[in-house]
Structures are given as structure tokens and as C-alpha cells.
């Protein structure tokens, strides 16, 4: 990466206020998921227009759109909440997640839209109390910031190409 590009996408390239709002959004997002609060997860997305994709790096690198989760409109993000909370309820073995984030890049896309990259590691603990890594990867986001930050689109790209067992909750 050239010096020019690096300085344009550094976290410090956007105002402290914007950074704070984005940090709040990221914190709310993982706090919701780590307490299995799917409605809280939903609240992180822009209700007028948003999308959520979760896919492996293997597919991303080959330009293949297939994902573990492919919610290309806000309506389907809402539906995912219903699947987990109501339809699947009681059929899967609960697992506790812990998300750990590290923002790496941020850039203004004009008006109130920003792009951001954030590394993540997600640990999970099963019923037997054993903790393992669920996934490691990077969020590639577009975020609307206007007094409060909301996700316009989130793409969770997993370096973890072989996931353990199954995934119920989004990353």
C-alpha cells in the first residue's frame, strides 16, 4: 500500500466524532450478538436500506458471491431474526460467542457515508464449557453516520474457510 493510500484510509482520516459514533455502533453490534439479542443485531442496520453478507475468503477471493448468509435487503435481515428467534428456537444447541474487534481502516465516501474495515475474532463456548475459535476475518462495511451510526452494508469475510459444526447466529 502506498503512503498516500494509507494516510487516506487511516482511522485518523475521519473526525473523532465520526470515529466515536462508528465505535459505538461496533460495540452495540457485538454486545447484541454476544447476548443472543437478534433484535439488537437488527437495530445496527439502516432500516431504509441495508444488506448483510457472511462469506468465506475462499469465495471472496474468487469473486464468488455465495455466502453462508446472503441477506441482500433489509427485509431478509428482519427474516433472519425471525428464523433464529422463532422458527429454530429449541432445535439447536445454544452456544455463547465473544466477538473481539480491531478497526483498521476508515474512509469518507462523501455525504454521511463511510467505508470501514474491522478485523474480528469470534470465540464460541459450547454447552460442555469448552471454548474454541469460531471464525477469524474482517468486516467490510459501509456505514451511515448522522448523529448515530448504522450499517448500510456489512460483509463479514471469514478467513476461516472450514467452519466448526454449524452457524446459527450471524457474525
Amino acid at each position: 500500500m502506498s503512503d498516500q493510500v494509507r494516510s487516506d484510509t487511516r482511522l485518523s482520516s475521519v473526525s473523532r466524532d465520526v470515529r466515536d459514533q462508528i465505535a459505538d455502533l461496533q460495540a452495540d453490534y457485538i454486545a447484541a450478538l454476544d447476548s443472543q439479542d437478534m433484535k439488537g443485531w437488527l437495530a445496527s442496520f439502516d432500516e431504509n436500506n441495508s444488506s448483510y453478507f457472511c462469506r468465506s475468503k475462499e469465495n471472496e477471493d474468487e469473486g464468488l458471491e455465495v455466502g453462508y448468509m446472503f441477506d441482500d435487503c433489509h427485509e431478509r435481515i428482519c427474516d433472519r431474526v425471525k428464523f433464529v428467534d422463532e422458527i429454530w428456537a429449541g432445535t439447536f444447541e445454544e452456544y455463547q460467542t465473544r466477538h473481539f474487534l480491531q478497526p483498521t481502516r476508515c474512509k469518507s465516501l462523501g455525504e454521511d457515508l463511510y467505508s470501514a474495515q474491522t478485523n474480528f475474532t469470534v470465540m464460541y463456548t459450547d454447552d460442555a464449557g469448552i471454548t474454541k475459535v469460531l471464525a477469524s476475518g474482517c468486516y467490510d462495511d459501509e456505514i451511515v453516520v448522522n448523529g448515530v451510526a448504522r450499517l448500510r452494508s456489512r460483509k463479514a469475510v471469514l478467513d476461516t474457510n472450514v467452519v466448526p459444526r454449524y452457524m446459527v447466529y450471524p457474525i
Partner: peptide, 20 residues
Amino acid sequence: RLKQINLIGPAGMISMEDGE
């Protein structure tokens, strides 16, 4: 097809339970 792949795979609405 891309949309309906939500149904299958490791996080699929109707295949997640098979792994478990």
C-alpha cells in the same frame, strides 16, 4: 440461486441442524 443458498450450507435454514 444465490438467495436460496441461504437455505443450505453450514448456516442453512434447513441444513444447519443436520451437522448438529
